[in-house]
Each structure stands twice: as structure tokens, then as C-alpha cells.
């Protein structure tokens, strides 16, 4: 008799856990946001030449529950530059886009913030920035605006080519800056 009650109790417990687990999974999709429009621009401001390019093919996912994210961009998709040859050099000689087609940033939001609530936030993200297949641990600040389940991010940061094993040949060292200014704008919506 006692055995039966005990068994029942365990079963009820198991049922509870199952329900809890199921509801946890069910909740996840609403926590998950994806980029619906995203743009990355960069600028090299060297003494003899300014080079600008941008891509609107930024893709990314954000989990506002776990506060982690993953962003990726196709390096080939950058447009701009000062000549078609410069774009070819960007892909062929500097980024080696055939070998390393994507640049990525993935990590976590440091601040404890509830991004389901409307508001403006200045957040820090900590993660791995991978460019030219060289990962760098970075803390990148970003401004976040949340309005009716739409999350808009805006961020400015710099990338040092030397950090990512992209050498600048001496002949162009007056035309290409080692410090590249990068601007990211993206809109996340629930997936």
C-alpha cells in the first residue's frame, strides 16, 4: 500500500517535470529574435585614401531569455570601394573571402536586462569576433532600442587589421588604415 502511494508520488513528480520541460521548450520561440534587416559599414581613413564599403546582408539570431546572440555576414557581399579592382583586392588579397567567406560575432549580453520591455538601453556585449578566420575576444558596446517587440541595435567599434592577421603591404600603407571603423545597424524581430 505504502509502495503504491510512493510510486504515485513519483509519477506525479515526473509529470510535473515533463510539463515544466515542455513549457520551457514551448516558451523558447518567443524568446528568439532574428535580424530582418541589418547593415554593416566600414571605413578606412588613411592619409592618401578613404575607402568605404557596406553590406546589407547581415544575418543574426538573438535569444533575449539567455541573452546570447550570433551574427554573421557574407564577406563577398560588401559593396562600395573606389574601384572594381579594389573590391577584388579586398576579397582576394586581404579578406581571402574564398577561404573564409564569413565574418562573425557571437557571445552574450553582459548587463542583466529584460529586452522584452520597451525602452532604450546602452549595453555591453562580450563575445568572439571572427574576421579572416582569426577569433578575438571583444567587448563591444551597443545602443539598443526596444519598441513593441522590435529590437533595434546600433553600434560603432573599430577593428585592427593587425589583430586579424591581415598585413598591409608597404606600398599601400598610406592608402589603407590599420584601424578600420565599423558601424552596425540591425533590426531584430521575433522569429
Amino acid at each position: 500500500m505504502f509502495n503504491l502511494i510512493q510510486r504515485m508520488r513519483v509519477r506525479v513528480l515526473l509529470l510535473f517535470i515533463l510539463i515544466a520541460a515542455a513549457s520551457a521548450f514551448k516558451n523558447q520561440p518567443s524568446q528568439l529574435y532574428q535580424i530582418t534587416s541589418g547593415k554593416i559599414s566600414f571605413k578606412s581613413d588613411a592619409p592618401l585614401e578613404v575607402i568605404k564599403a557596406s553590406s546589407t546582408e547581415l544575418m543574426g539570431l538573438l535569444d533575449i531569455g539567455k541573452k546570447n546572440f550570433s551574427l554573421k555576414i557574407d564577406v563577398h557581399s560588401f559593396q562600395g570601394f573606389n574601384s572594381p579592382l579594389q573590391k577584388e583586392h579586398f576579397n582576394e588579397n586581404y579578406m581571402e573571402s574564398d577561404k573564409y567567406p564569413y565574418a562573425s560575432f557571437n557571445g552574450k549580453i553582459i548587463e542583466d536586462v529584460d529586452l522584452s520591455a520597451d525602452g532604450n538601453y546602452d549595453l555591453r556585449t562580450k563575445g568572439t569576433l571572427t574576421i579572416h578566420n582569426v577569433p578575438q575576444e571583444r567587448i563591444i558596446k551597443t545602443a539598443v532600442t526596444v519598441k513593441q517587440k522590435v529590437i533595434i541595435i546600433h553600434s560603432n567599434f573599430t577593428v585592427l587589421l593587425s589583430d586579424h592577421n591581415i598585413p598591409i603591404p608597404t606600398v599601400v600603407n598610406q592608402k589603407l588604415a590599420n584601424e578600420i571603423k565599423v558601424e552596425v545597424n540591425a533590426t531584430f524581430e521575433p522569429r
Partner: peptide, 12 residues
């Protein structure tokens, strides 16, 4: 955590 990256890869 890991899935977020692989989910993105699938999307790409």
C-alpha cells in the same frame, strides 16, 4: 547556446 550558431548556419 551552441544551437544559436548552428541555427544561423542553417538559415544562411
Amino acid at each position: 547556446d551552441v544551437n544559436l550558431d548552428s541555427m544561423l548556419d542553417v538559415q544562411i
